Amino acid sequence: MSTTDPTMGPAFDDLVKLQRTADEAHHRLRQLNDACSRIPVNAWSEDQRAAWHVAWRAWVDCVRSVQEAITVYAVEHGEEIRHVDAQVKRAAGHNGPTV
């Protein structure tokens, strides 16, 4: 996964890219939620339900990928996962407390 050595885990820049991808997927899901929020969930069309499910699944998959990569990175570098997570979120542009 590393851009420098294929035998090693992810580089820090890889983690930031994965986090930004997860953030983009979350933004798309929120846009879809906002667009459909005026309609009760039980009144959504099949297309709306399918679109929401696809967006939700994409976001969950992205979050899982970034968390797995953060764990590998933290273990390889002897750092606490929560500290690496906080560093990645800051580097990806998150505001507010992260630890």
Rank of each mutant, 00 (worst) to 15 (best):
T7Y: 08
T7G: 13
G9H: 14
F12I: 04
D13A: 09
D13V: 07
D14N: 06
L15R: 11
L15W: 03
T21A: 07
A22E: 06
D23P: 06
D23C: 02
H27R: 13
H27M: 11
H27C: 09
L29Q: 05
Q31W: 13
Q31C: 12
A35W: 05
S37E: 15
R38H: 15
I39G: 08
N42L: 04
N42A: 05
N42V: 07
A43E: 11
A43P: 07
Q48H: 09
R49V: 10
R49I: 13
W52G: 10
W56Q: 15
R57T: 15
A58G: 05
W59Y: 10
W59G: 10
V60C: 12
C62Q: 04
V63Y: 10
V63E: 14
R64T: 14
Q67S: 03
E68A: 15
I70F: 03
T71H: 06
V75A: 12
H77G: 09
H77I: 04
E79T: 07
E80G: 00
I81K: 06
H83N: 07
V84Y: 05
V84H: 03
D85H: 00
A86E: 11
V88W: 03
V88T: 00
R90F: 09
A92I: 07
H94G: 08
G96A: 03
P97S: 09
